[in-house]
Amino acid sequence: MSTLRPLHSNDIKRPDEQNKHGISMEYIEYIDRETSTLCKEKVPGERWLKWLYHNPFGKIALHSVVKNKFLSAWYGHKMDSPQSCAKIPDFVKNLGIDMDEATRTMEDYTSFNDFFIRKLKPEARPVDDESESIVSPADGKVMAFERIDQLGSFFVKGSKFSLDNFLQDKELSTKYSDGSLLIFRLAPADYHRFHFPANGHISATTQISGEYYSVSPYAVKNKLDIYWKNKREFSTLKTETSGNILLCEVGATMVGAIIQNYTPESEIKKGMEKGYFKFGGSTVIMLLEKGKNQIDKDILQNTAKGYETSIKMGERIATACT
Rank of each mutant, 00 (worst) to 15 (best):
L4P: 08
L7P: 12
D11T: 08
D11K: 07
I12T: 01
K13D: 03
P15G: 04
E17W: 07
Q18V: 05
Q18C: 12
K20R: 15
S24M: 00
M25K: 02
Y27M: 03
I28Y: 09
D32H: 12
D32A: 02
T35P: 09
T35G: 02
T37S: 13
L38T: 04
V43E: 11
P44E: 06
G45P: 05
W48N: 08
L49W: 14
W51C: 00
Y53K: 08
H54A: 00
A61W: 14
A61M: 12
L62V: 00
V66M: 08
F70L: 00
F70Y: 13
F70E: 01
H77P: 00
M79T: 14
M79K: 13
Q83V: 06
A86E: 05
A86K: 13
K87Y: 10
I88T: 06
P89R: 08
P89T: 05
D90F: 09
V92E: 10
K93Y: 09
A102L: 13
T105D: 03
Y109W: 03
S111Q: 06
N113P: 14
I117H: 11
R118A: 05
P122L: 00
P122Y: 08
E123A: 09
P126R: 07
I134N: 00
P137L: 03
G140C: 05
K141D: 04
F145H: 10
E146D: 09
I148R: 02
D149M: 06
S153P: 01
F154P: 08
K157M: 13
K157E: 15
N165G: 11
N165V: 05
L167S: 12
Q168D: 11
L172F: 10
S173H: 14
T174G: 10
T174M: 11
T174E: 15
Y176W: 14
D178E: 10
G179Y: 08
G179F: 01
S180P: 08
L182Y: 06
A187H: 14
H192G: 11
F194D: 05
H201D: 12
H201V: 12
I208M: 07
P217S: 02
A219D: 04
K221I: 14
K223C: 02
L224A: 12
D225R: 06
I226W: 11
Y227T: 03
W228K: 03
S235G: 03
T236R: 14
L237Y: 09
K238L: 04
N244C: 12
C248A: 12
G251K: 01
A257Q: 10
N261H: 11
E265L: 12
S266C: 07
S266N: 11
E273P: 00
E273F: 00
G275K: 13
Y276H: 13
F277M: 03
V284A: 02
M286D: 04
L288P: 11
E289T: 09
E289I: 02
K292D: 05
K297H: 13
D298S: 10
I299Q: 05
L300I: 15
N302D: 12
T309Y: 07
I311S: 09
K312E: 09
K312A: 02
K312P: 01
R316M: 07
R316C: 02
I317P: 04
A320R: 14
